[in-house]
Write a protein that binds this DNA or RNA. Structure first.
Lengths: 155, 155
DNA sequence: CGATATTGTATGCCTCGCTCACAAATTTAT
DNA sequence: ATAAATTTGTGAGCGAGGCATACAATATCG
């Protein structure tokens, strides 16, 4: 369920080593792999879980809202919502005020899965925290935030 | 070519805000979008570019080597190599010592594109560096490295 | 009212990432 | 030297995510 294990020598590249975007991508990949390990029995992805949490804690949100928060296209969000609804984890409803909107809500099955998932999240969090002091951990989060937040600010 | 632009209020979640893995994912997404903007005319992805640089600076590497370095499955690497070879940017050859291996090399077209791409990389680097002091920048890289390197160390 | 923007949806295309299975070659063990 | 295990590339298949484009319905603003 993972990439091969490097024990032998592996090619490196001077011009690659200090490139931030590579480290970012590799780190994200590592987390993603760890995530699917930890959550394998729940069959859920990082994006899906985040989406569900967002729905649970913002009753009545719409797909567009989620897209804005998680910086995804409307069409992309729809795919995710379709998959979650297809599994009976969330439910679409009608907004009383705006007929274009669809309110999103967690089903009972979804809530059940979420309560398990939240525990697992702790596990993932610990796996990450192992590597850092508290200060480093918060620093890292803050620095990362600058990357995606400035992306927003640009408009 | 991008996600919608949040100007309005957007749902947030207390339990989501300090989750490191979300910031990591969003940051990576933001970089990816910026990347495809900057490199749009070259029609190349982050992964593809990294792969090509790796090949160029490690003459005769194999697909498996790349997989280990970039932490990707053999099968995944093959897909990437296929696409690059299909566009005539790289070339497969035969290893003189090991008949299982395929040596990878950059074609002339590939080298031409790489020289442009390296300039664009600077642009992406600057876009990132804007947000950070030098110390922060290096700190961030170092912290990220801990995430994917420990992943390796686990074996 | 009319023009403009927002929301959801459908379609289609592409990249990445994985599993499983297989064959050929190489290395290690007996 | 022969047998066993490992490495390498490949093929087929599956699914998620991410995008553009286009369309219809609804809201909002001038």
């Amino acid at each position: 369920m993972n990439a091969p294990l490097p024990l032998t020598e592996v090619p490196t590249s001077a011009s690659i080593d200090h490139v931030l975007d590579l480290h970012l991508r590799l780190a994200q990949g590592a987390v993603q792999r760890r995530f699917s390990d930890i959550f394998s029995d729940l069959g859920i992805t990082q994006t899906q879980l985040t989406t569900m949490i967002l729905i649970q804690e913002n009753a009545g949100t719409s797909q567009s809202d989620i897209g804005r928060t998680l910086q995804m296209d409307r069409a992309t969000v729809m795919g995710i919502i379709n998959r979650l609804e297809g599994r009976g984890l969330i439910q679409r409803g009608q907004s009383p005020t705006d007929k274009r909107r669809q309110t999103l809500a967690i089903t009972e099955a979804g809530a059940a899965m979420l309560s398990i998932a939240r525990e697992r999240s702790t596990e993932l969090g610990n796996w990450l925290k192992e590597r850092f002091s508290d200060a480093e951990f918060h620093m890292l989060a803050a620095l990362l935030k600058r990357i995606h937040e400035v992306d927003i600010k640009a408009f």
